[in-house]
Design a protein around this nucleic acid. Structure first.
Lengths: 144, 144
DNA sequence: CAGGTAATGTTATACAGTAACATCCGCGAT
DNA sequence: ATCGCGGATGTTACTGTATAACATTACCTG
């Protein structure tokens, strides 16, 4: 999916949730799209300041939170960062592997794993927050 | 496992790894044991300051990192916190469910899920970092 | 146009984590 | 015993991450 189609899909997703892909949100989403892997809020903030003169932390955090809330981005807790989700229109569950060394990200289908996971958590009456599961570790190019 | 036996097991684990459960580490471990769920580094720091007069962030972070490195504690990235691992002597993989509302924690066996997970990641040549998987969400008492 | 709602701007601050260097302490070798 | 080494801890200062609280704007709708 190229950037144009991706942004159009993002617009549709916002609209479907009663919101809008505002100029700021689009700009932030494009900035994150420009990185191959994990990007940090303060990096996006710096980019934003370069592009539009002024911006403060809440500006970028609000946009990132919004985009993550509807699945266009995923937050990678272990790295205090964000990644683009390229599957937000698909129904299948993605397993995200984020490399701590190179910052690269890979998304895999993991329906089987998710079935197993959700059965286990359901048995405990527990509802996981994240739609997608993010693991950190070492990718095949960065093995120790 | 009561506290005494737990601490003895922790000592053995440290020794087995060529280290020691020093006074500071024992104290930190006991403090974390005293909380029913997730506890934050700065909470432990405050407790430590109360108990021994002076302590700075590196003191508590070093102890927490050490304890987490060998599995006595787990870090919960999503909450910037730590929890006690009650299974560090067992071989089975634990799935940890941490409630974002009440801070409570539950540990489940999840060997099946882990098998599925590790097959999936292995196929991608990816080596996950954490021995144990921590999910955040809502426990059965805190459903929205 | 009035008034409400969502979004953004602004300031200040709280919370989380680490670098760098000093000091201490236990222990084995001389 | 003491020298010197390495692991652990103390101390200072700082960087990075995130949010509270309030002001302002933009836009829609009646």
């Amino acid at each position: 999916m190229d950037t144009q189609h991706y942004l159009q899909a993002a617009e549709r997703l916002c609209a479907a949730n009663g919101g809008k892909l505002t100029e700021l949100r689009r700009q932030v989403l494009e900035l994150v799209l420009g990185y191959p892997g994990v990007v940090k809020a303060y990096q996006v903030l710096a980019d934003l300041q370069r592009d539009r003169g002024a911006a403060a932390p809440p500006t970028v955090y609000r946009a990132l939170d919004y985009l993550a809330q509807y699945g266009m981005l995923h937050r990678v807790d272990a790295l205090n960062g964000y990644i683009v989700c390229h599957h937000f229109e698909c129904s299948h569950q993605a397993l995200i592997l984020a490399c701590e060394q190179c910052g690269g990200v890979e998304e895999l289908d993991a329906d089987a794993t998710f079935q197993s996971l959700s059965q286990t958590t359901a048995r405990a009456g527990f509802v996981p927050r994240a739609q997608s599961l993010v693991l950190t570790g070492s990718c095949k190019h960065c093995q120790p």
